[in-house]
Design a protein around this nucleic acid. Structure first.
Lengths: 345, 345
DNA sequence: TTGAAAGCGCTACCAT
DNA sequence: ATGGTAGCGCTTTCAA
């Protein structure tokens, strides 16, 4: 290492070259842009000599050339981008796994999956924001998209719009996930095990009503026409709220509760136990989602196990829809639910 | 309504109009494309008469015109897209909230946040995939991005690359989240409360080693030079694995365990209790992440509370970096940790 | 106040 | 086998 005394003022760090384009690659390789495109895209319709290919690839590597997706899809008239809104609240392991499966499956079909952070933007405005990206398909969980939004997306070239939610939307494919069945399964289970005065926890957090409302309705439906009663129990996800509910528990005179999901079940069960209420003797508790934590509680938590569609299925639906956009929208009921009895009921 | 007998073969449903462009809007409004652009972008430098503005807006509305983001950013030479990889494993409420804050803050600064579903794609390949979208900034949690990846992104015009992880990466800004401090806090707490033979749970799930390794190292560092010992305890997130570990617990001769996080702590604590081991008398247990569930366990779980940076802070860092890309990369230590003592230690 | 036109990076058609 | 080039949708300068 040579010692350099008094180096001059520090040189500006690497004079920010501008972004290399295919023209730069062509220049460096001594060929035309067309040839570059052919080589880098492995165009089969055209024969390029092996030496030329090498020169082009070498030049691209040397410049650190990365094709410009926007230019490409502008030229092509379409993209392979599948867009979905990023969830606005913490999602459990179930949904996480579903998303990952989906991404993997779509990647294999050569789509690019992108979650768009749409926050505080409502309905049609969100649809417009998505449409600007000209995705080839849009997947929307929940019930945030109306027929107008679907129309905007289709008018902007989306070849498939799929909703994952409680109801079908005009013009869109639907994976019907009616959480009704979850409540129904829980309600039926509680009724079958002799419970007649059933409470149903309804979380305070907004954004969850998409799920909680149908789950409640499902319980109601399950015991309709019987002598059982259903009581709605609003509950925030916080210890104090749970304790307060537990304190007036005996006054409520309930012999069972469907706690919305396993986490709320854990919260409520703890509060009830602290209040000295015996589970399941005095009150049966059933959760939902079949999380690990339910098995770790004492008594072990009975829970409604959900069967989500596989990511693969949805990916296939998307691909089919993209290939044949004229096909009329499919609607699939995809949510299965069965109650797993453990020790809390 | 005229009755038409024997209608011919069902007409193709709504002859798929093609996507309206600003030229279509111009035509319908009877103006030039330039005028359309001025009106729809509220160009201040140019005065357009009110009647014209109305005609243009009306035409745009009628056609359902949505500008084409790719064309726009192609012309502009840059986009306002901030890209981050979508997490490949279930993330807890902490991280979820962080992402949401970040998205909200960036939206306010007029950026579009997009999570790119990069799955099964490694390192530089991932960086290339991201670079194709020409994001103005890239945020990468974890340690999946090397100096080469950073270089690819910068060469493709990314004005800011920020890593959120254990170490700085050449050329990128860094939010240093060294989980070291988490283990350190737990280790110190256990030591201070008189424990000397400390176990540290290391989750079996891959993808988590980014966090678990430094957490383990932190515990080691905390008791270095003392008479305390640290024992690594590999553990899968499953009941059987926990039970098996609990069965050989007494042989291990440990008097404390840092369980990686609250969920693993719950898993292990349950197994230990089922084995008849008294907590905290025989073994102290401390988790991390300060989740609600820790407060619901009995004994209440001591835990390491993490202080993540606020989404706002990161958004500001990104914005600063985008505005002045020449500024040399900042590195901030942003992970705070303090142990909250409850009843399990 | 409005319009004509260039050009962003890329691909695919048509020549050579 | 390779090159020239039009044109995707948009913004912006320059002219009228």
């Amino acid at each position: 290492m040579v010692q350099i005394p008094n180096p001059p003022a520090p040189a500006p760090p690497a004079p920010k070259r501008s972004v290399p384009t295919s023209a730069d690659v062509a220049r460096l390789a001594g060929v035309s842009r067309a040839t570059v495109s052919y080589v880098l895209n492995n165009a089969r319709a055209v024969r390029i000599s092996e030496p030329t290919r090498r020169r082009v690839r070498e030049a691209a590597r040397e410049l650190g050339y990365v094709p410009h997706a926007a230019a490409r899809s502008l030229r092509a008239g379409h993209s392979r981008m599948v867009l979905m809104p990023a969830p606005a609240f913490p999602v459990g392991p179930l949904y996480s796994r579903f998303i990952n499966e989906l991404q993997a499956a779509l990647s294999l079909l050569d789509y690019t999956v992108v979650q768009h952070g749409t926050i505080g933007v409502h309905d049609d405005e969100a649809a417009r924001a998505w449409a600007e990206l000209r995705p080839v398909a849009v997947l929307v969980p929940g019930s945030g998209l109306g027929p107008r939004g679907v129309e905007v997306l289709k008018r902007s070239g989306a070849r498939a719009v799929v909703t994952l939610g409680p109801e079908t939307v005009e013009g869109a494919h639907a994976l019907l996930m009616d959480h009704d069945v979850v409540g129904h399964s829980a309600g039926a289970h509680l009724f079958d095990t002799g419970r007649r005065r059933i409470g149903v926890v309804v979380p305070g957090e907004r954004g969850l009503d998409t799920f909680s409302a149908p789950r409640l309705a499902g319980v109601r439906a399950a015991v309709r026409g019987t002598d059982a009663t259903v009581t709605e129990l609003p509950l925030a996800h916080d210890e104090e709220a749970a304790a307060s509910l537990a304190r007036r528990w005996r006054d409520l005179g309930l012999d069972a509760v469907f706690a919305y999901n396993d986490e709320y079940a854990m919260l409520l069960m703890r509060a009830l136990q602290d209040e000295g209420i015996r589970i399941p003797e005095e009150t049966a508790v059933v959760g939902a989602d079949d999380l690990m934590l339910g098995r770790l509680l004492r008594p072990r938590l009975s829970t409604v196990h959900l069967e989500l569609p596989s990511g693969q299925e949805l990916a296939d639906l998307v691909d089919r829809a993209v290939r044949d956009p004229s096909a009329s929208p499919e609607a699939h009921k995809v949510l299965g639910a069965r109650t797993i009895r453990r020790d809390s009921t």
